[in-house]
Every structure is written in structure tokens, then in C-alpha cells.
Design a protein around this nucleic acid. Structure first.
Lengths: 235, 235
DNA sequence: TTTATTTGTGTATTGAGTACACAAATAAAA
DNA sequence: TTTTATTTGTGTACTCAATACACAAATAAA
């Protein structure tokens, strides 16, 4: 079945940048690499693309391997192919970024991989060109979140407006006026107010909201400004 | 040097979606495939990634092979990796899209490849999953052009406002009010009015403009609305 | 019962986007 | 040479969205 016989074949890997939000800070999940080269150094979760799986399948497999999660938000980011990025043998890496509800992540599962969550501002030194991958992912999540409601993927099914606002403030690293924020967000028609409150986060308690999934899917591609002055915040 | 010895290696290709604007219609450049499978069918310009070149280098090489052009706008689009996309042997394809000034393209060069420009609305049947690649490129160029001034890459160094407007109308397939368009575009500070006019396009003649390159590079990443109601036009 | 903390809400102002029409230039035709 | 046809270039009023800004309500903890 090999008919392009004169061509060189290359190793192909998938690396995942996995985002999570702990209610205060945007974080990514890293593992301690279990094999050489760079054994025991911090690294993205990744793996080689297998002969019978597509890239998307590989990314989902790799994500599941570490988190046991399926059906989460996963998007292809960029493909990195410098000839010397892996010193052992040329490997081209297709990166994906994932947005998961950090509460669904079982800490226990990460033991095999010695995984840990790191705040985006304190990411340790990573192997190969993975620093660059994380930078690209950071840029992309901001870019996309400035106009599309992807950040809900980081929250549990029920969340409060203060939680949502903290998330946006954390991703864009800027304070937002809460009156304008709630006006803006509620105006999208994406949220349904619940009758119960989250009593844990504050004395007074804050009403829960849920996504209106119908509107969410319908409007996902539309441009929506969730934050003031996106221009100045993206770089 | 092969130490990941148990892993399968794959063919990796680069395919280019090359956009050009003839003053009236947005087009892409296609070639007649010169080898089996699907010999003589319409196809994107592409090629295999060579052992000693990066992906960007491969894309530039392939673009130059067909157009003799260098230093043009070239951006990685998406990587396609379904296992069966190439029936002969699994090949993963990294796609790039290019924006070129169609006037700089030497028709003669295309003879070897039997290349032809096709209006985006009348793209012929393409091999493998290239239809999908073109769709992705179309979507991306619109998405990006709605907010960043990339379409200037399709025009010659000197151009008129009516030409620019026709380009936007063609890309977004919508009529635009010219008073509002010129206000919008000139407000960006990206254009420098020249003293001479293009007499070819009309009786009265239209003033030429040139890009203010300093502002262009400085503001490239900023969000700028060039078209009314981008929402409704992107899908 | 007092205090401290966090939630929830409204209004006035500014600025950007939008709709809309007519005069100026000139090549081509009469 | 005059007339006609075509295309360029410009201004204003209106609407709506973005923004700045402050205080009362709720309640757990002291």
C-alpha cells in the first residue's frame, strides 16, 4: 500500500494544552514526562498519532488518558514542524487546546502522570518548543473568548455571575465593571436564571445561572463582545 | 538517530490555498494534478514535506514553485489527518492559505502545472478532501478579514478606494455603502492618499492610495471593523 | 444587634455605526 | 461643441450600543 515510495515518512504527535479554572485563576494541566529525552521534566500531555486514528481521535484519546473526560471542548490549534524541535528524531506535533470543568477532573487520575495544574502566569520551563505552544494557546483562548462564548466550557453546569466575571477577569487579566458585565452577558440571551443560590461563595449568596443550550449553539459563531476594549487586551 | 523505534511514521504533505483578486472576483489558483492517483484532476498546489525543511519552509517552497513569488502573505490554516483521505497511503496534510497580488503572478509559469484561477463560487470538484480545505480557507479569510486588514495583501501597492471596496464586497458577497466605507477605512489611518489618479477604471478617475506600512504593521492585530454587520456575513 | 462582605441593580453621557442624496469630473457619443 | 452617461467624492442626522458611575439589600460572623 506504500506507493509514494520515494518520500520520507515522519513521526507525528499530538500535544494538548488543557485549560481549567479553579474559581480564581486560569490554569493548565502539565505532566512529568515519563521517558527520555527530558524524563521527569514538565511537559504537555501528548502522544504519537497511531496508524488507524485521525488527529481528532488522537487528541481525544490523549485527553481521555489523562483526565478520563470525554466530549469536552477540544480544538485544533496549530501544527509545529521545525526540523529540530525534538532532538531525538524529527517529530511534527499537532497541538490541540481543551477547556475542561476542573471539578470534573479527578485528582487521583493524575497520579500516574504526576500531573499538576499551573497558573498561566507561573508555567514552569517546558520541554522542546512547548513554551511556544502554550503561548499560542494563551493567545488563541483570549482571541476566541473575546468574541465567542467559549469560556462557559470551563465552568460547571450551574454557575453564578460573580464566578463568570471572575473567569473573564482572570483570562483577560483586567477588572470589569460588574453592572456593565451583567448587562452585557444577560443581553445575549445565553443565560437562564435559576431559583437557587450559591451560598458558599458569599454571605448574601448569588443566584445560579445555566446556559440556554439552544441559544448557545445557535449563537456560538456570532461575534459577541463580552469584554470592554478587546483590542487592548489581546497582546 | 531513530529512538522512538516502535512508532509508525507517516507521510506529511503541505497544500496551499492561493487567493487572488482580479479586480472583480475573489479567486483561487488550482493545478491539474500531474501524477496518480487522480492524475489530471483539479487539485490544490501541494507537496510532501522534505526531511530538512520546516512546515513553513515547505509551504513557501510549494508556493514559489507555482508562482515564483516569495515573501507573500502565507498563514497556516489547519491540519487534515483522516486516515483515509489519501487512498494510496495515509498522508496528513498541513494546509496554508496565501494571499497574492494577482498581477504579480506570471501566467506563463502556470503552464507546467496547467494552473487556472477559479472564482470561489465556481470551484471545480477537487481531489481527496480538498473541497473541505477550500471551505475552511474561505471561512478563515472572511473571519480574519472582518477584523484585520489582510485583504490589502491581495492588491497592488497602489490602489483606489473603489477597488478596495469592490474587493470587500466580493469577499463578503454583500453591497457596502461607499460613504460609510470610505469613512471607516480612512479612519483607520492605514491609507495615504496619493496625488495621482487611476484613469483606467473610470471616466472621472479615482485617487490612488498606498498603505502606511508603519501603521499597518502596528495595527495589524487590532480589531477593526471593515464591514457592516460582520455577524451575518460569516456563515 | 452590629459589622463586614458581597450581591444586585439604573441612569446619563458619549461615541460609533448607519441610512441616505447630490454635485463634480470627464470620456464618449451625438 | 454640446450633450449624455458613468463613476467618484463627500456630509449630516439618527439610532443604538458602550461606558462611567453609587447605593441599597442580604446575611454570616462577630
Amino acid at each position: 500500500m506504500q506507493k509514494y515510495s520515494k518520500q520520507t515518512r515522519l513521526l507525528l504527535a499530538v500535544d494538548c494544552i488543557i485549560f481549567g479554572f479553579d474559581g480564581d485563576t486560569l490554569k493548565i494541566l502539565l505532566i512529568k514526562r515519563s521517558f527520555e529525552p527530558q524524563k521527569d521534566n514538565w511537559s504537555l500531555m501528548g502522544g504519537f498519532v497511531q496508524p488507524k486514528e485521525s488527529l481528532d481521535q488522537a487528541a481525544n484519546r490523549i485527553l481521555k488518558q489523562l483526565t478520563e473526560l470525554q466530549g469536552v471542548y477540544l480544538e485544533q490549534l496549530h501544527t509545529f514542524g521545525n526540523t529540530k524541535r525534538d532532538p531525538i528524531e524529527r517529530t511534527v506535533s499537532v497541538t490541540y487546546f481543551a477547556l475542561i470543568d476542573i471539578n470534573k477532573y479527578q485528582t487521583q487520575l493524575s497520579k500516574d502522570y504526576h500531573a499538576e495544574w499551573f497558573p498561566l502566569k507561573r508555567v514552569p520551563k517546558l520541554i522542546f518548543d512547548q513554551q511556544e505552544m502554550v503561548e499560542a494557546a494563551k493567545k488563541r483562548i483570549r482571541y476566541k473568548a473575546a468574541m465567542h462564548p467559549i469560556l462557559f466550557e470551563l465552568l460547571p453546569g450551574k454557575f453564578t455571575l460573580p464566578q463568570l466575571q471572575t473567569l473573564y477577569e482572570s483570562v483577560f487579566n483586567t477588572p470589569i465593571d460588574k453592572r456593565n458585565f451583567s448587562k452585557r452577558v444577560l443581553a445575549t440571551g445565553l443565560l437562564i436564571k435559576q431559583n437557587d443560590k450559591d451560598k458558599a461563595g458569599s454571605k448574601r449568596g448569588a443566584y445560579y445561572y445555566q446556559l440556554n443550550m439552544q441559544n448557545y449553539y445557535a449563537k456560538f459563531q456570532a461575534f459577541m463582545n463580552f469584554i470592554p476594549n478587546p483590542d487592548s487586551l489581546l497582546h
